[in-house]
Design a protein around this nucleic acid. Structure first.
Lengths: 164, 164
DNA sequence: CGACTTGGTTGCTTGATGCAACCTTGTGTG
DNA sequence: CACACAAGGTTGCATCAAGCAACCAAGTCG
């Protein structure tokens, strides 16, 4: 949806941003990663316009970051899942989340923490378990409400059942 | 410059994206991190409109990510430097760069690699030195042209003297 | 004395975004 | 059986930000 490529940019950061460096894409990926898999769920959680969400999902599907699967037919209803490529955005999300926690913290502390499924340890900005030191991937971790989660205004916390 | 906040978003990823999740901001940070410190240098390197660059730099300064210092007076001339907060975006840049290298590689391989100043080892997507295993920060690393750097069309490679 | 450099600002146009309304297929409810 | 409601969109319109080009100002070079 970027109407202009980054000309002369051989940098991979630029190429990454062409795909996910846009107002909503990473937040959609985060939602899906956290188990919020349906159109209306994502729409409600982010407050994104429906047409824009539709366009973003289509773009993420085109880029093979998200996959759409029907969970019933007649009427057709869909869920969105991350592909491997999408799951591999996890380290970038961890880095951005920790940067936000550090420099723009909520009044009560981080609203969300990520924990290592294996040992329950907290995951660092590098996606490393602070308890056991293992270098993790998206599948090894799950999100959980943090100290600042109470600030969440009205909305119940998203379903964090990080299915597989 | 986002004309709308992410309402009800307690997530730190959302808060980070409010600040740097925008078409150019991260690329500007990357340029400055790589030693491209002047207005016209950044403008030429990114091909960004001058008014937009001006607005972005001002926003990054307001957010305490970038600092502006005069390197001469009469006529006043400025250079831009990263603050600690700006330097701490390095892990996110590493993650995005490696994701791009992995999934949208240039024809010749990665255009840029990042190496550990201390031991010369290659830096991983987590900002860890693959030779010595140390967890690095922006100050421990420098960028260098990678195998795909030749593709860079015309422009000389930016000055990578990652000054302190 | 005119051209060039750096570091911008101003105005205009275009295109992406937000918002609201509508559509379609099916299910629940009285 | 009529009506409302839900999921998952599409369409149309208004607005706001981004791109582009021109201009400005202070100083320096030939």
């Amino acid at each position: 949806m970027l109407h202009r490529d980054y000309p002369g940019q051989a940098c991979s950061i630029a190429r990454s941003l062409e795909v996910i460096g846009e107002r909503w894409s990473l937040l959609i990926v985060r939602d899906v990663m956290n188990g919020n898999r349906r159109f209306s769920g994502i729409q409600a959680s982010l407050g994104i316009a429906r047409n824009v969400l539709s366009a973003r999902l289509q773009r993420l599907i085109d880029e093979d970051i998200i996959e759409r699967r029907a969970y019933q037919e007649s009427p057709p209803r869909y869920e969105y899942f991350l592909t491997e490529k999408g799951l591999d955005l996890w380290p970038a999300l961890m880095a951005l989340m920790h940067w936000g926690d550090r420099y723009n913290p909520g009044p009560e502390g981080p609203p969300m923490v990520v924990v290592h499924k294996g040992c329950g340890g907290v995951v660092s900005d590098r996606g490393i378990c602070e308890s056991c030191g293992q270098i993790l991937t998206a599948r090894d971790a799950r999100a959980a409400p943090g100290p600042g989660a109470a600030v969440y205004d009205g909305l119940p916390f998203s379903p964090f059942a990080a299915r597989r």
